[in-house]
Amino acid sequence: MSENRPLALVTGSSRGIGKFICEKLIVDGYDVVGCSRNASELVNAHYQHIAADVSDQSSVLNLFKQIRKEHGSLSVIINNAGIASMNHCLLTTVDAFDRVLNVNLKGTFLVSREGAKLMRRHNFGRIVNLSTVAVPMSLEGESAYVASKSGVEALTKVLARELAEYGITVNALGPSPIETDLIKGVGADKIAKIVNRLALKRLGRVEDVYNVIEFFIRPASDYITGQVIYLGGI
């Protein structure tokens, strides 16, 4: 970690999309703090892992206490930590519903709230939230997941307005299906069906995700806020 590289926080950095985002941010000149409940395989001089559960307020406060103490400022947040629950609504338990809402929606809220407190010190910040194409598709079989990510999109738009005066932009991006642990349990036929509803009929790639993130976090993107970009053409 070095003094003159801007700091980015990526939640859910231990694997999948989050891990890739961390690697790319490092290449692009950022110091990166990553968090997830478990350890990360990523070892790099510009990467620091802090174990945290984004759905737990005290864990998030502790995460930011460390960031404040060790780094003092924060430029970018990628709210990537997320879980899914694929089930018909009639078979969705209240526990599963709570878990999904807590991690995806409450987690995004808590990390954004605490992060914005730090970002406002320098009157600059970029927050990017992860949604999904399942929202505009109103995808059946994912009621809790889609509800949580719809909440994330609504939060994105309200925070964009509330945080604008601090130089903080808040945007979201909705990936199409990408091969990670998250969709391991979803049948190939269901994935194919989703892909067929896209204009561009292929699976998404982590590179596609980073492309949009890279656009949102550029200093020159300071006139773009409250927007949701979907991959694949929906």
């Binding site: 502790n62 930011f64 206490k65 404040r68 407190k117």
Partner: peptide, 16 residues
């Protein structure tokens, strides 16, 4: 927020 941050820096706490 400024008061909250100043106290948390001073006391190494996490008050909201």
């Amino acid at each position: 927020l400024s008061v909250e941050q100043a106290i948390n820096d001073e006391l190494d706490s996490e008050i909201v």
